[in-house]
Design a protein around this nucleic acid. Structure first.
Lengths: 207, 207, 207, 207
DNA sequence: CATGAATGAGTCTTCATTCAT
DNA sequence: AATGAATGAAGACTCATTCAT
C-alpha cells in the first residue's frame, strides 16, 4: 500500500505518478521497468518515490489492485442482470462485456496484460491469486447452473471453469491485445461455448 | 548453438555446466539467472563460459532445444502406436504419456516450466512457437477424427485444440509441478475429455 | 554534455572530477584511461560518474569543449590587435601567443596533446574538425594578405596554411610539451616563417 | 622478433598469419585488433601464436619492420638515380615515387596508415622513430643541396625538412588513403615545393 | 515534505596469456 | 611442435535504495 503521503497528494499528482508507471510498463514491460524511468517520466524527485511507496513492488501491487477493483466493480454490475438465466447461455454476453471493459479501460487492460507476462515471482503470485478468483467466479456460476438443472450433474464444473478461463486468458486476451475485430471474437466465443455445451461427438445420445 | 569448444568437452563437464544452469534456473527462474550464478555453481572460470557459449541466450536456446528434442522424440514414439483410433478416446493415454515423460525427465520438465514463466521477449517467442506447434499437433489429430467421422463436422477443431492445450499447459503442468498423485491427474484428464466429448448440457439430443 | 546533476555540483567537486580525468589522461593517455581510474582518483562512487555523464565519451567531449572554448577566447583577443598588418609578419607573435596560452593553461594544453594522440575514432573526428578550423583560420589570414597585396597572387594559400599548421601541430607542440626554452621556440618559428616568406633558393636578393 | 619456429615455417604459412594480421588491422585498426581475431582469421591454434611471437607486440613490430624495410629498399633504388640534381627540383618525382610505392604495395601502405593512427604508446614510439628517420633523409638531401649551392646558406634545412615531411605525412597520406587522382596529388605537390623554393612574398622575380 | 546526490554491488562481456596434452 | 582449453582481471554500465539538506 502507498503511504498516506501519497494518498493525501492531490489526485492530479497521484495520477501523474500512476500514469507514468503505466506508460513505462506498457512500453517496456513490467520486468524491464525501472524506478529511474518512472521518476523521470513523472518528473518527481527520486526521493519522493520512496516517500510515496515502500519500494518498487509497493507501487506495482497498488497498480494491480486498482485494476482488480475496477474490473470487479464492472463485472459485478454486469452479472447482477443475469439472475435466473443459465451461465452457458450467457457466456457470450459475459465475454463481450469483458471485451467492452477492455476497450473502455485500455490502460487497465494493457497493464493487466503486461503484469500477466511479468516474470517476477511476487507479481506472478498476485496473478495466480487473481486467476484463482476468476476461476472461482466461473465455478460459482456453473454450480448454480448445475443446481438449477441446466447442466448435467456428473460434470466436474471446476474442470469446465478452468477450461473456459484459460482459453480466455490466453486466446481471447491475445485477440483483444491485437485488436482483432469484435465479430471474430464473438464468433470464436460462440464456437467455444458450443463445444462446451454439446461436446464434439457426432450425434449420439449421451453416455 | 554452443561452440565446438563446449561440444568437444567431456560429457561430464558439459553436464556440469548444463546442470548448473538448470539448477539455477530452477531456483531463481530464468529472468533472474545471471552468468555469475552459473559459473559459480559450475565452478568454471568466468571466461570459460564465453568460450562455450556466444552469450547468455546461446546457452538458454541450447537448453531449450535439448528439451524440445527429447520431448519430440518421446511423443513421436508414443503417437506411432495409435494409428486408427480416435484422438478423443486416446486423449487419456496421451496425457498420461506426457506425465510419464515429465517423471522420467524431471530436469527437462522443470526447465520447461521455468522457461514458460520467463518474461524475456526472445524466450517467449521461442515458447509461443512451441505452443503453436503443440496446438497444431492436437489440431491435426482432431482433423483426422473429423475426417474419419469420429467427431461432428460443424466443430471448429482449432478451438477444441486450443482449449485442451491451454488447459494442459496450465492446470496439468501445475499438478505435475506440484507432484500431485497420478490418480488425481488421471481423474482430471478423464473429466476434461468427457466434457469435450459430450458437452455439459443435460441429456438432450444435439442441435 | 554533462548532466545537470554535474553542472549543479559545487565548483570544487566538479573540478575534482575533471582534474582527476585530466590527470589520468595525462598519465595514461586517452585510450587507456578507464572510468575505474577516474572514479578512484576522484574518490567518487562508480555510480556517481554515470549520474554526471552519460558515458565515457560525454566526459571527454566536455573536456574537449572546455579546451576549445578557452583557446578560442584567448586567440580572439590576440588576433583583434592585428588589424591591418600582414599575417606573415605577425606569425612570430601569433605563435608566441600560443606558447603563452600553453604556459598559462598547462592542463588544457596537455589534455589537448593527449587528445591529439588518441586513437578513438570519435575523438579523432573531433580533432580533425578542430584541425580543419585551425587551418581555415590560417587560410583566412593568408587570403587577406593576398587581397592586400602582401603575398603573391599565384600562391595556393591553402597549401601554405596546411604547411604551417601541421608543422606547428607536430613540431611546436612537441617542443612545448617538452618544455623547451622560449628562445629556441622563437628561433624555430622565425626560421620557419622566413622560409615561407622568401623560399629556399639562393640567388634572389633577400631582405 | 618472431621466434625461429615462425621463421622456419613454410613461407605460405608465415604469409597466412601475417596477412591475417594485416587484414584485421586494416578492418578494425591497430588498437582494436585482438589476438582472437588474428588466430581465427589465420586458422591457427591459439597456442601457436605464442610459439611464433613472444606476444601481441612482437607481431606488430615485425609487421612494422617489414613495411619499413620494403619502403627503404624502394626509396634507395629511386634516390640512386638522382645523383647530382637538386632535391627541391626532384621533390615532385620523389613524392610521385612514394605514391607509386603506395599503389604497388597497398597492404604495406594501409598498414602503415593504421599504425600511424595507433594510440598504443610503443607503436607510437616506433612511428616517431620512423618519422625521425624520414626527416633525416630529407635533411640529408637538403644539406647536399646547400653544400652544392642550390639553396641559400642561411636556411635552416631541418625546418624545411620537417615542414615538408609533416605536410606529406598528413595531407598527402590522406589523399592517397582516399585514393584521390594522381593529377590532384601532383598539383598539390608542385604548389608545395614552389612555396618552399620561392616563398610567398610578392615583389621578387619568380621563375 | 521535497529534493536530488550518494552509493556500491551487480550485470554482461572481452582479452592476453598460460598450461597441459 | 601443435593444439585448444583454462583463467581471471578488467572493462563499461545499471539499478534500487538511502541520506543529508
Amino acid at each position: 500500500m502507498p503511504t498516506d503521503t501519497f494518498l493525501n497528494l492531490p489526485q492530479a499528482k497521484q495520477d501523474k505518478v500512476l500514469n507514468a508507471a503505466i506508460d513505462i510498463i506498457k512500453a517496456k514491460g513490467y520486468d524491464k521497468t525501472s524506478i529511474s524511468d518512472i521518476v523521470k517520466m513523472a518528473s518527481i524527485p527520486r526521493g519522493s518515490f520512496y516517500q510515496y511507496f515502500k519500494d518498487k513492488f509497493d507501487l506495482y501491487y497498488y497498480l494491480f489492485d486498482l485494476i482488480q477493483t475496477s474490473k470487479m466493480a464492472y463485472f459485478k454490475s454486469i452479472v447482477a442482470k443475469f439472475e435466473d438465466r443459465s451461465f452457458v447461455d450467457l457466456y457470450d454476453e459475459i465475454v463481450m462485456a469483458g471485451l467492452k471493459f477492455a476497450q473502455e479501460n485500455e490502460d487497465a487492460f494493457m497493464l493487466g496484460y503486461h503484469l500477466y507476462k511479468a516474470s517476477d515471482a511476487t507479481v506472478q503470485k498476485l496473478w495466480l491469486n487473481m486467476e484463482q478468483r476468476g476461476i472461482e467466479a466461473y465455478e460459482a456460476f456453473l454450480w448454480q447452473d448445475q443446481k438449477k438443472g441446466f447442466i448435467s450433474k456428473d460434470i466436474n464444473v471446476t474442470v469446465v471453469a478452468k477450461m473456459l478461463y484459460h482459453f480466455n486468458a490466453v486466446e481471447l486476451l491475445k485477440m483483444i491485445y491485437n485488436k482483432e475485430s469484435e465479430a471474430k471474437i464473438r464468433a470464436l466465443t460462440h464456437e467455444t461455448i458450443e463445444v462446451i455445451k454439446y461436446g464434439v461427438l457426432k450425434n449420439e445420445v449421451k453416455r
